[in-house]
Amino acid sequence: MHYVWDFDVVLAFTDFWLKGASITLAYAFGTITGGLIIGVFAGMALLFESRKFPWLGAIVSAPIYGYVQVFRCTPLLVQIVWFYYALPVLWGASMPAWMASGLGLMLYMGAFSSEIFRAGIMSIDKGQWQASRALGMTYSQMMRRIILPQATRRMVPPFVNQSILQLKNTSLLYVVAVPDIMYTGSIIVAETFRPLEVYTSVAIMYFCMLFPLQRFAARMEARRDI
């Protein structure tokens, strides 16, 4: 097979690519940050216990548990499509594509983050909790000084991994026509009929964004000493 590669068709659309890349990065950054915040609060709710009112713990954590399981056990693609096409039927008003997809991505990240947060806290040895209590620390002192400093170190590697997946998952914006890198690529293919060069370039762009992050994660994993 003889194929003449022509990357000029790719370079001719530099402005589009830059816009697409900035949308991809903006969605990744925004939904990772938002997801992290949701994750911390949802994780705290999952861990919530009340000594005085034992039933309160269940009331707080049950709906959060439901949220986490629904978002972990359904595909992100389904969630985005559902927010964009299905929710408006219930709600009576449509949601712009950028909002529906952003909401889906953020809640998805939040569900996974909450599990990372919860697991990080739970991984701290029981002895650390009892030693802190025995010193007379209040719950917040114990969390701030003893538990969280140790737990956050354990949370970083899985969180970086989840962030890498999240950046890749932004390519699903394509289905609701938000012009990220992937969607930009499909438009340029429609213009130029050059899928090989264009989609190869799309892959390279994702790779260039994620490879450094992957290296960073690997280095964090290696630092098991901390």
């Binding site: 040895d125 002895g127 650390q128 009892q130 030693a131 209590r133 025995a134 010193l135 007379g136 620390m137 209040t138 002192q141 003893i146 400093p149 140790q150 170190r153 901390i226």
Partner: peptide, 21 residues
């Protein structure tokens, strides 16, 4: 109240439970 109460009581455990960080 419990936290304040425990400040007056020192305790040492079988597994030491020092803060590793």
């Amino acid at each position: 109240v419990l936290a304040r109460y425990r400040t007056h009581i020192g305790m040492v455990f079988q597994q030491f439970d020092l803060f590793p960080h």
